[in-house]
């Protein structure tokens, strides 16, 4: 293997790839460093990659009044778990039916499912439907329901299901098993890689979403993590109110706004940053099935 590689190209590849890899990680370290810095240092010297006087002040302050953070965690986890579960169920049932070549309506149903990818009525009627007609504003439903069926996920799942050996299903049918039984007892258990991949895409979509919140959420009760971060970003006072700071500590130095903002970012985004890379291989698999074969 190694003989076919010329040294110069390989060395150049290592330089470029490690350079870019560092660029991918460095910005996160900057956020981390700001969150660990003393507020006074940030005000006088600005942001730096290494904190001058490392301190946990910002985290201490966030944890003194963690109510909003915890409630946002609750919202995001609920939305992600429920959304991923129902989305997976509906998506895989639909994708399975589309993958059945002996089903005479498969082509028509396929067109029905994928046409919305090409043409839509625009944002306005959809917004009116969800917010007014279905009355989902300010409820968790608004954060879950609109993403339940994503045609691209159906396509991805169909790619996985199509590669399943037809002979197994044939055998089950000859034994007289119903379609439901075949789907839940055979297809789902045999399609674990496909389910894992689509589940990850789903979970990532729900976890990172703030678009639905931006459209449909006005209260402070159903604020997801991303939306909390978004609000803190657009209005730093929201941080102050989210942390329920009393009147006595309102000067900037007493209240480490700069560092606390970045600490919130780390606390909100951190867990996923550590969790998702472990599932990387499923993403890679999904990309291959979705892009090359799909």
């Amino acid at each position: 293997m190694s003989s076919r590689r010329s040294g110069a190209i390989r060395a150049l590849s290592h330089v470029v790839l490690s350079g870019f890899s560092i660029l991918c990680i460095l910005p996160l370290l900057l956020i981390l460093s700001i969150s660990l810095s003393k507020e006074m240092d940030l005000l006088t010297d600005g942001y730096a990659l290494i904190p001058k006087t490392p301190t946990l002040e910002a985290y201490a302050m966030v944890f003194r009044h963690p109510d909003q953070l915890l409630s946002s965690y609750g919202v995001t986890i609920t939305v992600t778990v429920a959304g991923t579960f129902f989305s997976l169920l509906i998506t895989s049932m639909l994708a399975y039916v589309l993958s059945r070549r002996d089903y005479p309506l498969a082509r028509k149903t396929s067109f029905f499912v994928f046409f919305p990818m090409l043409f839509s009525g625009g944002l306005v009627p959809w917004y009116i439907l969800v917010a007014r007609t279905l009355g989902m504003r300010d409820t968790l439903f608004a954060l879950i329901v609109p993403y339940l069926v994503i045609p691209w996920f159906v396509l991805l799942m169909k790619g996985f299901l199509s590669s399943m050996p037809a002979s197994i299903l044939e055998a089950a049918r000859i034994d007289g098993a119903s379609e439901y039984r075949i789907f839940f007892r055979l297809v789902l258990p045999l399609n674990k890689p496909g389910i894992a991949t689509v589940a990850l895409f789903c979970a990532l979509l729900y976890w990172n979403d703030y678009w639905l919140s931006l459209l449909f959420i006005q209260t402070t009760r159903t604020v997801s993590l991303q939306f909390l971060l978004f609000r803190i970003m657009s209005n730093i006072d929201f941080l102050t109110s989210a942390l329920a700071i009393q009147a006595g500590v309102r000067t900037q130095v007493d209240l480490p706004q700069q560092s606390a903002r970045m600490a919130m970012c780390i606390l909100a985004a951190g867990p996923m940053m550590f969790v998702f890379p472990f599932f990387q291989k499923y993403f890679v698999k999904g990309l291959i099935v979705g892009a090359v074969k799909g």
């Binding site: 870019f20 991918c24 976890w207």
Partner: peptide
């Protein structure tokens, strides 16, 4: 490299 280069993909645009 893949792990490092994939990291930004997992971040939300808010982050």
């Amino acid at each position: 490299y893949q792990t490092a280069m994939f990291l930004p993909y997992f971040l939300s645009w808010v982050v």
